[in-house]
Design a protein around this nucleic acid. Structure first.
Lengths: 358, 358
DNA sequence: GGGGCAAATCTATGCGCTTTAATCGCCGCG
DNA sequence: CGCGGCGATTAAAGCGCATAGATTTGCCCC
């Protein structure tokens, strides 16, 4: 690589000052057409590429939005994509079978950034992320979007003192950061309501880990609908991390043995719903024949599943877009108050609740 | 946002010079533990975030790799994701049903970047991309990865004079850029060979657009296998852009009418294969009963399809990883010659060729 | 107490660009 | 013929950090 030409080189070649070169690129109308052409010609001849670093330094803005992605696989499946795994490893076969939650959101962020003339920086949060890594990203963007539970709140707070930070999919709270969430409660309430009024079910158990704000809200929705109908709340214990499949099998077996199988399982996530459907199938219980199962998220895996999963679809792309939009707005004109936004969800009535043919 | 504190502020507060502050962050071992702590404490108290712009300027490197993504949907389906489409629009329902080609590749790039301590900048190539947009990305990264046919060669050449540029999935050629490709020819040769020797087929038609280097190579693989077996080459005309489904239907109808249906369709892409399978099904022709159909790419859509599509899987994630790896290597020590690498593909024998039960 | 040496720290400069304030050139007009 | 006024251009001062080279500090030994 030859040394990159700078404004000085272009200026020299065009016989003007560097200021004129700069103006030519940033305020073309302020420079006489003839000199503009001279500058452009010089730039072209030299293969000039303006340095974003220098520009960023001078302007105090980078024109980039950051997104902290995270290793979904490692977190959820206990499987870390092995950097050295040979291609074609069958174990990795369905690794990326479906667009995962954060892929969708990321896509939304990308779309909005592009639309508004920003570029996106994607960083990850590995378990080993040092504060330096984080600063490495935070230092080069004008705004930062993060997934919940990927970064310690304390760090986020500090970063948010300097640049706007938006949390994606975190329920509305008062942590001082911007946030976008979805209507977790309303979604599961609507779903539960559907099971009750359309299918006439009364013994509906909620499946899901509590302790996470979004799951709590889903539970609230479930409870609200049940109570409104005068039905009894019933919950299923939560699987330990990484043990979902086995736990679901055991749980189903237990219920079967005790004859306590509910009429429906309202799961807090599609992932759980799918695991329970597998467990039920393995135990010879028909879904939705003998029991209805519903999820939450709207993963494609649920759509492809047979019976197709009745669930609540989250507007994932929209989530990302909204988050990016908030950031970009804040960059332009920082507001005093954190912006919190909640997006509507959508009931996806498919087969596993008993609607349509299974 | 309060003014961002700088090294000067930190230095002042810690009672040291800015050089020491800088060292504390970049070469911690060169600074005495006691002063290091003082600096860190000051930085923390001030909420200091190093400016990547300034750092990049001073170092002459940005620590970022760029990826020019592109609007796959608009290109392939004629559908532009509408920024203003309301969430829940059914038309968008299966929009993101499966991880698309470039999502996979992008994931690979991300993984390698993270592994090597780089961050990724994602930019897009909209039809409206001006040279300025491109420079906007090229100017802020140390290396650039691009998908084929997204940027004019002339521009790529110019950029590559300053920073390494790698083309993803472009067959080996001599355009002076770095490149990663897959074994298109070997893949389709193996697939064709499978149809010939395992299934004993002799009338196998190649389906696919020529004129694209990768497709040409696939055709070569097909031809090679056919000729080696002493069989006749046969091709099916190519569908005009965006007309795939209709064209496939017409083609199938035509063959049926003329009684010229081959024993197998070796398609150059999964997308074509799926379209032909739909067309065949619509025409009442059984796959693989009456005709075998194969693809190329390894899309998930083919895996979920019934019968599951026999195809050649491209190592998409690996493609991205390799590309990023080349870039990062080149940043570290620029080589004189462009690096070209070809990755192996993998035959995925599933149902549509007649293997296993359909 | 002083000399010598390595480690620690600091001084000073430059990285490439933006931007403000000042200068230049030119025209029309009194 | 000179002056005001205006648009085009430029000089110069940073922006925040890294780093070579200068300087100081700390420490050991005589």
């Amino acid at each position: 690589m030859a040394k990159r030409p700078t404004v000085y080189d272009v200026a020299a070649r065009a016989g003007v000052s560097i200021a004129t070169v700069s103006f030519t690129f940033t305020q073309p109308h302020k420079v006489r057409p003839s000199t503009r052409e001279a500058v452009e010609e010089a730039a072209r001849a030299l293969g000039y590429l303006p340095s974003a670093s220098a520009r960023g330094l001078a302007r105090g803005k980078t024109g980039a939005i950051g997104l902290f992605s995270f290793d979904y696989y490692a977190r959820n499946s206990g499987v870390t994509p092995d950097a050295d795994a040979p291609f074609g490893d069958e174990a990795n076969e369905d690794f990326r079978m479906f667009p995962l939650y954060h892929d969708e959101v990321q896509r939304g962020v990308e779309m909005e950034c592009w639309r508004r003339g920003y570029v996106l920086m994607v960083g990850d949060t590995k378990s080993t992320s040092s504060e330096a890594d984080i600063a490495g990203i935070a230092g080069r963007v004008d705004g930062l979007a993060v997934f919940p539970n990927t970064l310690p709140d304390e760090i986020l707070l500090r970063i948010s003192k300097r640049i706007p930070v938006v949390e994606l999919s975190i329920p509305i709270n008062n942590n001082g950061l911007h946030g976008v969430s979805v209507d977790n409660e309303g979604g599961l309430a609507a779903l539960t309501e559907h099971l009750i009024s359309v299918h006439g079910l009364t013994d509906i158990a909620f499946v899901g880990p509590l302790g996470f704000p979004d799951k709590e809200h889903r539970f609230s929705g479930y409870s609200r609908a049940m109570e409104a109908a005068g039905l009894a709340i019933r919950t299923v214990d939560t699987a330990p991390p990484g043990q979902l499949a086995a736990f679901a099998r055991d749980t189903v077996a237990g219920m079967l043995a005790e004859g306590t199988l509910p009429q429906a399982l309202a799961c807090s996530t599609d992932e759980e719903a799918l695991a329970y459907m597998d467990a039920l199938a393995a135990a010879g219980v028909s879904v939705p024949g003998q029991i209805a199962v519903t999820g939450f998220d709207g993963l494609v895996a649920g759509l492809v599943n047979r019976p197709a999963l009745t669930t609540v679809r989250q507007p994932l792309v929209e989530l990302g877009r909204t988050g990016a939009s908030i950031l970009i707005d804040q960059v332009a004109s920082p507001g005093k108050e954190p912006v919190k936004r909640q997006l509507p969800v959508k009931l996806m009535i498919r087969e596993s609740c008993g609607c349509r043919a299974a």
